[in-house]
């Protein structure tokens, strides 16, 4: 299979709170023949705070990254993080509006010389690789574990702008997790916002919202939640104790990045998947892999 090469934007949290996402994503992409070329000396896209302050400022931060990517000669940037995706996707969209690019250029003083596009790694795996191809890479099917896919709010909404998957009932994670052997449960809250952007500012907000997701997942009998967003993961995993405290529950639901589970199924060395970075211990769930329900019970 021909190698697919993309400019890669890891996002700031990849070196910190979502280090396991960055690591496992790189390992999985390597396995699937997706070549990632890091944008040299990239900067923060500004995330939610930047667009909350000003759209031109937000676009300018993204525009510098596009300018940096021009050095690589690659016009399609891919990123694992939906917040980075959305922010820089909007930057490109807004720059198509009359007068907007000029305002951005006043800040960056580096007008773009090429046409750029940005999409998620998830979109590349789903559309360019396809779940059928993913299945061919599986060495250890993850049978025996039931997962709920949680997409978060930003990955593909609104549909008419993001143009990926169904913006009311996305299936990308459902299909990829099924391809690696997981039992995928229909998760009715798969796109409901977890309040991620408000996490640091007011963790009661995130507790209230993400607690509901955790309870529904638990009620459905899920062994784990699978996510594609660092903010969702942080809220569901790191702040799971806060949500439990808020609602008086005692849920222990591991929250994996989808790339971690794909890596496991592909037989990639566990150290490269950084499973030890998860806060809620995934060991009991991982022990179920390959076992039938009865075996797991015993």
């Amino acid at each position: 299979m021909a190698e697919k090469t993309f400019a890669y934007y890891p996002g700031c949290s990849g070196a910190g709170t979502s280090i396991e996402y960055d690591k496992s994503n790189r390992a999985v992409c390597e396995e699937l023949g997706i070549k990632l070329v890091d944008i040299p000396d990239w900067n923060c896209c500004g995330s939610t705070p930047a667009h909350q302050v000003d759209h031109v400022l937000s676009a300018a931060l993204g525009a510098r990254n596009f300018a940096q990517a021009e050095q690589l000669g690659l016009d399609t940037i891919i990123t694992p993080c939906p917040a980075c995706l959305k922010n820089q996707h909007n930057a490109l969209e807004h720059m198509e509006e009359p007068g907007f690019a000029e305002r951005v250029n006043e800040l960056t003083r580096r007008p773009l010389t090429r046409k750029h596009s940005i999409k998620s790694v998830l979109q590349v795996i789903l559309e360019d690789i396809t779940p059928e191809e993913v299945a061919k890479h599986v060495k250890t099917p993850l049978s025996g574990i039931k997962i709920v896919p949680y997409y978060g709010c930003l990955m593909n909404r609104p549909g008419k702008s993001m143009k990926f998957d169904d913006d009311e009932n996305p299936m990308a994670l459902d299909r990829l997790m099924a391809a690696i052997g997981c039992e995928v449960l229909d998760f009715p809250l798969k796109q409901d916002c977890c309040g991620g952007a408000a996490g640091v500012a007011d963790n009661k907000v995130t507790s209230r919202l993400s607690g509901r997701h955790l309870q529904v997942a638990n009620h459905l009998g899920a062994d784990a939640m699978v996510v594609a967003c660092p903010l969702c993961q942080m809220n569901m995993d790191m702040r799971q104790a806060q949500a439990n405290a808020y609602y008086g529950t005692s849920i222990k639901l591991p929250v994996f990045y989808y790339t971690q589970l794909m890596g496991l199924a592909f037989g990639i060395d566990k150290s490269r998947l950084a499973l030890n970075k998860l806060i809620v211990d995934p060991a009991p769930v991982l022990a179920k892999i390959g076992k039938s329900a009865e075996e797991a019970q015993a």
Binding site: H51, R157, C193, A198
Partner: peptide
Amino acid sequence: WMCVTCETCTT
């Protein structure tokens, strides 16, 4: 200030 731009309304 509280809107987190989750895009539900827009969608």
